[in-house]
Write a protein that binds this DNA or RNA. Structure first.
Length: 226
DNA sequence: GCGACAG
DNA sequence: ATCTTGTCGC
């Protein structure tokens, strides 16, 4: 089909954005008050695919939910590994536009710098949200045939994911006896801070950062309503 | 035909 | 992502 044409176009856009990525903090961690989690859910109706994007904002210190917004619409871009942002960004932008509060940081269900061209959805989306972002993936995206090293079975244990002598991200065991998650910088943040923030947002109930977990739950609720 | 493959 | 019950384990 013309999927090859899309991939060529998408790749060009990702390569153009890459030089603008900065893996260093543009904020003070003790100034962070509001963090947002972003996730989407999909379903099919009469051959068409629809989706809803939910953003849940919580207070960084109390974990209290302070705002929830969502968007809904038809999904036209297919899922292609490495190009998730192009499929999900339209609904993400629409939902973000409805926010009345301004989160200091956004966490995504998907990768950031840990990506074939270092331009996963968390990194890509930062340019539209103009805020620091973090990528949180539940499964490992293998790049250049490099496997990750399993971290020790201990809360907070992690291993760096090194590809071509660059640290792309980390396999992080957020809780003992659970599978690791794969975190990476989105933009305007460093990997140490990324790790600290993710660890401060997990608890016994969720191996995923709370905002991402809540956004995921919210998408299921919204899908039932449509 | 077979294997890969964030969500 | 989504289709889906029970079941093993802490």
């Amino acid at each position: 089909m013309k999927e090859a044409k899309l991939i060529e176009e998408f790749t060009t856009e990702q390569r153009a954005l890459l030089p603008k990525v900065q893996l260093k903090n543009t904020f003070q961690i003790d100034k962070i008050q509001l963090v947002a989690g972003v996730d989407l859910a999909y379903w099919d109706v009469e051959g068409k695919t629809y989706g809803t994007c939910c953003i849940v904002v919580i207070d960084f210190s109390t974990h209290e939910v302070v705002e929830k917004v969502h968007s809904y619409g038809e999904i036209t871009v297919p899922y292609i590994s490495g190009y998730l942002a192009f499929r999900e960004l339209p609904l993400i932008k629409a939902a973000a536009k409805k926010l009345t509060l301004q989160p200091d940081l956004f966490l995504f269900d998907g990768n950031g710098y840990l990506h074939y061209r270092n331009m996963g959805i968390a990194t890509h989306a930062s340019f539209y949200l103009n805020k620091p972002t973090i990528g949180v993936a539940k499964s490992y995206l293998k790049i250049d045939d490099i496997d990750f090293t399993m971290p020790e079975n201990r809360e907070g244990a992690y291993t760096d994911i090194v590809i071509n002598n660059k640290i792309y991200g980390r396999a992080l065991r957020t809780t003992k006896n659970v599978k690791p998650i794969f975190i990476s910088c989105g933009n305007w943040i460093d990997l140490e801070t990324t790790t600290d923030i993710v660890m401060s947002l997990v608890n016994k109930e969720s191996r995923l950062p709370i905002p991402v977990r809540l956004a995921d739950l919210e998408t299921h609720v919204k899908r039932r309503e449509y």
